[in-house]
Amino acid sequence: MTTATMSYPAVPETALPATQRKVAIICSKGSLDMAYPGLILANAARMMGIDAVIFFTFWGLDIVREKTVDNLQPGVVGNPAMHMPTMVAGLPGMSAMAAKMMRKKIAGIDVPTIRELLETLDEAGAELYACQMAMEMMDFTRDELVPQVRDVITAMDFFTKSEGAQIIFI
């Protein structure tokens, strides 16, 4: 809530901003449709010269796990935007089919895959972190994560790193 009232100096028209703008994005969901928004926003921020921090927690860890990063599934059940009856959406293979269709569509408009996005973000200077507590809860180890993740940090560490940033929770 506080982020809305915090004021940042307007970006000067011609020269570099006097104060560096920053966003911190918390990715807490591991479905394909929840992975893209956070990563795209972070990438857009970096393209504009805004610092970006991404914190992956709970199911969001799937976005940065080697085992799952390349086959994230869109959430079809209980997703009203899928325009599919829950009974149908719950059928076996429905999620995989939706994922296939979505990936095809994504490739068609030249949107990078999740892995590519993670690589781009890393190269662009966005900072990717994994949540320590969630890692422990799910018995994940540091080795299971993609190399773009800089560190496994605590919630308090996250607040240190996101100081002065606008925080977005996804």
């Binding site: 857009a44 970096r46 504009m48 010269g49």
Partner: peptide, 20 residues
């Protein structure tokens, strides 16, 4: 992708926001 250069390079060539 068109020029075959890495995003990292672009951030080096145009620091502080290569997108714009």
């Amino acid at each position: 992708t068109s020029l075959g250069i890495a995003p990292r390079e672009m951030y080096g060539l145009f620091p502080k926001g290569p997108g714009m």
